[in-house]
Design a protein around this nucleic acid. Sequence first.
DNA 1: TGACATGTGTGTAACGATACACAAATCAGC
DNA 2: GCTGATTTGTGTATCGTTACACACATGTCA
Lengths: 371, 371
Amino acid sequence: MSGRAARRRVTMAEVARAAGVSVMTVSYAYGRPGRVSDEARAKVREAAERLGYPGPHPGARSLRSGRTGNLGVVLGEHLTYAFDDPQATRFLSGVAQVCADHGMALTLVPVTGSPSDVDRVTEAAVDAFVVWTTADDDPVIDAISATGLPAVVHGGPRRDGLSFVAADDRAAAAAVGREVFAGARRPGVLSFPLDRARLSGVTSGAPLDDAAPAGSGTLPPGGIDPDASTFRVTRRRLRGYRDAWAETGGEWSWVRVAVCSTNSAREAETLAAELLTGPHACDAIAAMGDELALGVLRAATRLGLTVPGDLTLSGWDDSDAAAPAGLTTIAQSLRDQGARCARIALGHPTPADRDTEVTWHLVSRTSTLRP
Amino acid sequence: MSGRAARRRVTMAEVARAAGVSVMTVSYAYGRPGRVSDEARAKVREAAERLGYPGPHPGARSLRSGRTGNLGVVLGEHLTYAFDDPQATRFLSGVAQVCADHGMALTLVPVTGSPSDVDRVTEAAVDAFVVWTTADDDPVIDAISATGLPAVVHGGPRRDGLSFVAADDRAAAAAVGREVFAGARRPGVLSFPLDRARLSGVTSGAPLDDAAPAGSGTLPPGGIDPDASTFRVTRRRLRGYRDAWAETGGEWSWVRVAVCSTNSAREAETLAAELLTGPHACDAIAAMGDELALGVLRAATRLGLTVPGDLTLSGWDDSDAAAPAGLTTIAQSLRDQGARCARIALGHPTPADRDTEVTWHLVSRTSTLRP
DNA sequence: TGACATGTGTGTAACGATACACAAATCAGC
DNA sequence: GCTGATTTGTGTATCGTTACACACATGTCA
């Protein structure tokens, strides 16, 4: 199997000779069947079949024609993430739908933070890129820019020359923050990673630092500065939460922040346990994803806390599990957003893609119904 | 965005001129950095940066070198299926893991049953293929064969020259069939599609045809012949169920078969409702997927039937939802199988990949605990 | 019938890179 | 200081296809 001798590829010229036509006729027979007569097409097909010609060499075709028939999706995550993370999965489902509509294949370009990432991107034989949220300082963005191919960035960062699709995360975070923080005395936030380092941990929550535990994990000491996050989505959600808390008269430094390195309920549960215990246990937690919120819910249950009695809680995305859990959340269709990104990247945007903002809305459920 | 003028690509020759070195030096600087001196590499890098050279053209590189850095995965389904279907998702996660390990990108080639499918396959710029279950008579298989590239087929069909990975579905189906059919008087099977037509429907279940309703949907009249299914996996599971039922002394023609066109609980629920009502209502159902079994469970609940009291039930795959539902099922790691397919396709099989069969085991839970 | 459009086949010249072979410079070992 | 190995740079040929321009036959319309 692995050692199978590579059969020499049959070439178009050989097919042409066997069919008694010119090379161009063969080329047209494949690339623009209407350009040749039925008779010639049949001769070509027969010869190709007989010789075992697999069709035009994709590399040669793309070299000459400048098209590949591939849309590249760059994921700032491990490749398996594309199939494991529910948010990424829904986004990609939308991308895939549009690819299928246009007869394009989908190439997933894994980008895991190693120096060779840039090579992966430049080596990708694609006609356009869709980029799933990455950090402002990710060199991959510049590499994509350098290719000169159409590219659409979802979530961030913004760049001149690259299209951009995202919801207004700050406004949405403020909306859900108002709900979850209303009447809270000790708010908390469960955040996505702040930057490419993807450190996880819990801040101690000033101004009670003197009494508080030092915070866990590997986060640098001191509070979290929302403006310092290099992930645009994270940054804007943090700002939105800050806005909401400020509206209640609170200071951001009172807000304890836990940062998850992954979008998993498992990790969230561990971190939430820290937020929910000790002298500064949170009584309201805004989580940046439903998965994370479900982790909080599990931690709360284990600690004997009730939601919303002892703790109000919000998630993000309105995933399938949100409604059964009574989770207040932000609904946005990642699938639609994926489709939109793909349409723009492929040069077939609908009028709505151009003119309409990405929509979101607050879904209020019992998890924020403070008694 | 869509109308952006395509910038002309900077070529390697231009970089070479700007850097004051030969084209080959530039080529080596990218493709084999150890082949050139640090000094030359720095000059090249600087010139490339200055001119905005995006790196070697992937098409040209693959034309000349014969390698693309892509693994192609052919899905005999709509492209969104890759991200929507839980089974496909786990399989692909394993494939993705191995791709990442070897620095390969992953290209999903959608194959939806249209005549252009074959073109999609031959146009795919990949170094090897992994094929997710398709029908014996799918022309795509021949197209893949014709490319001469290494290819691994998961589930079926088998072909000379193509590697093959699958569990022993017949034995596994017999094992779970024994469990679910034990003590049953009116068995049923909820099946995946039988062939590329993907017709759905319910057989009436001989030998009581005279009294039975004609069966619904678009299935051809008469019973289902397990041996006639062109999907190897479906065929072998049907045979296994038949084996198990035969061991109880039953005849295959007594088994009512419902065929789902998709792997969705929704469709399964509708079909199961038919299996569970009427004069020949089933008291045991073997489903080919956990998703389908969960659909049966919902239908049973709606009809006021208890499991396993009124109905024994089995699924397949031991997905996350199986344990909470008490579902007897066949456990197999599709992720491992995906990884194995990818390793073989990329020419890096482990000894275990070569020598060991794909494993499965029966997981007995309450859904087959007939009182 | 002439003028002009349309349909169909062909030859030539790229597309942008890398494999290969060779040459010059450098280095190690004695 | 000589030999052979290693390092590093270069020129040439070529990978397999399609864009383009042209040639010729046929069809259409006034």
